[in-house]
Amino acid sequence: MSLSKNSGPHTVSDRLAHNALRHFSERLIEMLLFAAAAVSVLTTVGIVYVLVSESIHFFQNVPLVDFLTDTQWTPLFDDAHFGIMVLVSGTLVSSAVALLVAIPMGTTIAIYLSEFSNPRVREIAKPVLELLGGIPTIVFGYFALLMVTPLLQKIFPELPGFSLLSAGLVMGIMIVPYIASLSEDAMRAVPMSLREGSYAMGSTRLHTAIHVVVPAAFSGLAASYILAISRAVGETMILAVAAGMQPNLTWNPMEPAATITSYIVQVALGDLPHGSLGYQTIFAAGLTLILITLAFNILGQWLRRKFRENY
């Protein structure tokens, strides 16, 4: 910088002041950006706070033992029972149906796209899958109720108009894109040298895919399955529309049943006063939902650690 023109003490202090200001505004901006990043932590804190604080009120009125062991869920009746297992059974059955569809289908698509298809098919297939994954769940609910259920009734004439089966099947289709796309990413990250080694030994593509690529990508596959389970357990609208909303302790997918999520929707549609016991049940149900999701996530993390392959 040339000193000839602006080298008086005055300009230097000016420049220092400017520098200090600049430093100050930089710090301010950094703090603002940090605050934005902290919003995500606040969200988690808020979720935990809301669920726990309302659930504490709930459990002051309903003993935890009753909550876990009662076989009826009739919170809005005069003879109120609060057996969460009734809702949990609906959630688990519908999720199981969904996963039985989604995991085999999603994994097959992922293996096909990563190991068999040519790049042009992949370029087209991935966006199509993304579109499928972007369809609003309420539309899937409509699809389950008005198309899949009548279709299934042709195969199983005794199937009622609302059932966990049709909701679960459609939920499975909804989850396929998540599994396919995440698993495919994981499998493509497996180094080519592993495949080449296997091919050099005379393996076919399928053998290589199943015995070399899948084990090597297992932690990524597990992650995609965990996400799928979270989606299935937390899915709401398909079940609210197509599975009926009457509480029903059952392990049979051919029956209608309420799930944790569809119960929350049902209560929210009604007009329960803030602070009533009925209002608090949805937070207790929400807490149960989060705990189930958390349990599956911890299990998945453990699986991932156990089967992680290093290369």
């Binding site: 969200t43 808020g46 604080s53 309302e54 979270s230 937390g234 929350i264 929400g286 996530n297």
Partner: peptide, 19 residues
């Protein structure tokens, strides 16, 4: 946190907002 929030069921956000 951000990773975990992505897996939180959307209805739970509804409960958060309600509270």
């Amino acid at each position: 946190n951000i990773t975990n929030l992505a897996a939180v069921p959307s209805i739970v956000y509804g409960l958060l907002a309600l509270g």
